[in-house]
């Protein structure tokens, strides 16, 4: 099973909120759409789901053009950020309403609802209303509803952003266990790069409705295609030094080390992070962030250096990556 977007665009008001977006998600792959808020990641999801119509471009599921197919016939499951559980229906009611509408028999409804509840280990909650559930339980119900759909594609819109940090970490393996082993392509929207790296096989970074780069998290980190991706991926943020020879120089804080031959810097800020510490130095080339071992006692002024091979160069005007010859 595959999901393919070709030159997808959506025009609203007087601007393209999504423009020329093309990518492919293969069988069993999970693509994370990553970007700042307003970059068009949720809009992309809505286009795939069929909730909105694209202005141009096409969407294919299993090589079939579904651009003009209604949301239902696309056979898509979507997990909403708000979970969108129907508050007046019980958990079982939430799971079964779609089946009922599509005319499934009573015995089939019971069988599938029961087995899905069992799979999610929420049998006890079947008769509760969403308002009587905790955040994590609601999340499970929303997932159960998506699983029950038996879709061709899974769409997840920030599925964990309403949960607290601890619960989120607990749920990640669970989520992968449940839906990431199947045949279906998955599109996972998030603004959290940690989550994207944890969940996705590929990450697409969006900015202003345009695809900046698509690749594995390693590729994005090691060879960011643009200044934007370099800035967006990796924490603490990459150091971007003022342009020389028509190019910005990027260097990751973790690639900087102390060396007597390097440029001199004055320590102006420390943030202890446990095993690591974040240091900020004032140098002749501007402020430099550096990540180093947490145990070192850093003197107020020292010399910093990095290896040529770790440098990233970006065109001064376009922000595009310039690969060294």
């Amino acid at each position: 099973m595959t999901l393919v977007l070709t030159k997808l665009g959506r025009y609203i008001g007087n601007s393209w909120i999504i423009n020329d977006l093309s990518f492919e998600v293969k069988k069993g792959e999970c693509l994370a759409l990553l970007g700042p808020s307003g970059c068009g990641k949720s809009s992309t999801l809505r286009l795939i789901a069929g909730l909105d119509k694209p202005t141009k471009g096409s969407i294919f599921i299993n090589k079939k053009n579904i651009t003009d197919v209604s949301p239902v016939e696309r056979r898509i499951s979507m997990v909403f950020q708000s979970y969108a559980l129907f508050p007046h229906l019980s958990v079982a009611g939430n799971l079964s309403i779609g089946l009922k509408i599509r005319g499934a028999s009573d015995s089939e409804i019971t069988r599938r609802v029961t087995s899905t509840l069992a799979l999610m280990q929420i049998q006890d909650l079947a008769h509760r209303k969403p308002s009587e559930l905790s955040g994590g339980q609601r999340q499970r119900v929303a997932l159960a509803r998506a699983l029950l759909r038996d879709p061709l594609v899974y769409l997840l819109d920030e599925p964990m952003s309403n949960l607290d940090a601890q619960l989120r970490e607990e749920l990640r393996p669970e989520l992968r266990r449940l839906i990431f082993h199947g045949e279906q392509p998955i599109v996972y929207v998030t603004h959290d790069q940690q989550e994207a790296m944890a969940m996705a096989t590929k990450i697409a970074v969006l900015n202003n409705g345009k695809l900046e780069q698509i690749g594995t998290s390693k590729e994005l980190y090691k060879t960011p295609n643009s200044l934007f991706v370099a800035n967006f991926i990796g924490r603490p943020q990459i150091n971007i030094l003022s342009p020389r020879d028509g190019a910005y120089l990027g260097i990751r804080p973790e690639d900087i080390y102390f060396s007597e031959t390097g440029i001199s810097g004055k320590l102006i800020y420390t943030e202890w992070q446990g095993d690591k510490q974040l240091l900020i130095f004032d140098t002749a080339r501007g402020k430099l962030r550096m990540l180093c071992n947490g145990d070192i006692n850093v003197p107020d002024s020292c010399h910093l250096s990095w290896s040529k091979g770790k440098e990233h160069h970006f065109d001064k005007n376009t922000g595009c990556r310039i690969n060294p010859q």
Binding site: A49, L51, P71, V72, I76, S77, M78, F80, A84, F86, I97, G98, I101, R102, R149
Partner: peptide, 8 residues
């Protein structure tokens, strides 16, 4: 929208 996706 969830209801629409469920086919209602």
């Amino acid at each position: 929208e969830a209801a629409r996706l469920e086919g209602l």
